[in-house]
Simulated assay, not measured.
Amino acid sequence: MKDAKPIPPQQMLDWCAKFKALAAKTRHAPLRKYYQAGVVAAQTPIDQVQFLAMDVETTGLNAQTHSIVSIGLMPFTLKRIQCGQARYWVLKPTSELSEKSVTFHHITHTEILNAPTFQEVLNPLLDAMEGKVIVVHYRNIERAFLGQATLRLLKEGLEFPVIDTMQLEARIHRQKLGWFARLMRRSQASIRLADSRARYNLPAYHAHHALTDALATAELLQAQIATLHCPSTPVGTLWN
């Protein structure tokens, strides 16, 4: 199944135009610099795109009341993962670590004691994101938490194009399952990161470390594109 249901050009999100509009109205120099750097056009073939896999670990699941505790970044293309340019930060969260969150991501109170704040890593984070299409597994976490953290700091959110490997996997399995099976409420395959990777024979990694999960997400997108799409597929058919 190669690009079974392509998105018409008129339905692709125009992030180029959006970035120009955001650059014109932002009041903050770091955000202006990020938006002015721009992003590739929606029609750009995916094999010509610079990606940045991203994962954030948090103190909970509600971006309004919880906060980021670590960020992992892994730049890559469809041909190469650039491990030497990876970035990883443990942050001092604005909300308390709970016993449940420590069990989940294994970041302890001792590790965050002298950790930088989100404000201290925002500029290098934006520098790493410049000109790249962000890749995540479940965009509601990264978008919501980065947007809320920037809003708290600057009174202005952060917007960026995202390819969601979880969404791509869900799209695949909806097509495979078919309307009759959905009507009969047959269970769908798990689209969690580890389970999705296993279907492409990718190795199992220890979960919930931001940098490891960023690497895992980069590898998953490479496998999804190699298996299910063509190198000439416009990036705008995959991003949100």
Rank of each mutant, 00 (worst) to 15 (best):
V136H: 05
V136E: 01
H137R: 13
H137W: 08
Y138C: 13
N140F: 05
N140V: 12
N140G: 03
I141Y: 08
E142Y: 00
E142H: 03
R143V: 11
F145D: 10
L146D: 09
G147K: 00
Q148S: 07
Q148P: 02
A149P: 10
T150F: 00
T150Q: 02
R152Q: 14
R152N: 15
R152G: 08
E156Q: 12
E156D: 03
G157Q: 00
G157P: 06
L158K: 07
L158E: 03
L158I: 07
L158P: 03
L158D: 03
E159S: 10
E159L: 06
F160N: 06
F160S: 08
P161G: 04
V162K: 02
V162L: 00
I163R: 05
D164V: 10
D164G: 07
D164P: 06
D164E: 05
M166A: 13
M166H: 10
M166C: 14
Q167H: 11
Q167F: 04
L168W: 03
L168G: 06
L168M: 10
L168F: 01
E169V: 14
E169H: 08
A170F: 11
R171Q: 13
R171W: 04
R171V: 14
R171L: 12
I172H: 15
H173Q: 15
H173A: 08
H173G: 11
R174Y: 05
K176S: 12
G178V: 09
G178W: 01
G178M: 03
W179C: 11
F180P: 08
F180C: 11
A181F: 00
A181Y: 03
A181N: 15
R182F: 00
R182D: 08
L183C: 09
R185G: 04
S187I: 11
S187Y: 06
S187T: 14
S187V: 15
Q188V: 12
A189L: 15
A189N: 13
S190I: 15
S190K: 15
I191P: 07
R192D: 13
L193W: 04
L193M: 13
A194H: 09
S196G: 12
R197H: 01
A198E: 13
A198H: 10
R199A: 13
Y200S: 08
N201Q: 07
N201F: 01
P203A: 00
P203S: 01
P203G: 00
Y205M: 07
H208F: 08
H209D: 15
A210M: 12
L211K: 05
L211D: 06
L211S: 06
A214H: 07
L215V: 09
L215H: 10
L215R: 06
A216F: 00
A216T: 10
T217P: 01
E219V: 00
E219F: 03
E219R: 09
E219N: 04
L220F: 01
L220C: 04
L221V: 10
L221D: 10
Q222W: 02
Q222T: 10
Q222C: 08
A223P: 12
A223G: 10
Q224H: 02
Q224G: 07
I225Q: 05
I225G: 04
A226G: 06
T227A: 14
C230L: 14
C230R: 15
S232A: 15
P234K: 04
V235L: 01
V235F: 02
V235G: 05
G236S: 08
G236C: 04
G236F: 04
G236D: 07
L238D: 01
L238P: 07
L238E: 02
L238N: 05
L238H: 02
W239H: 09
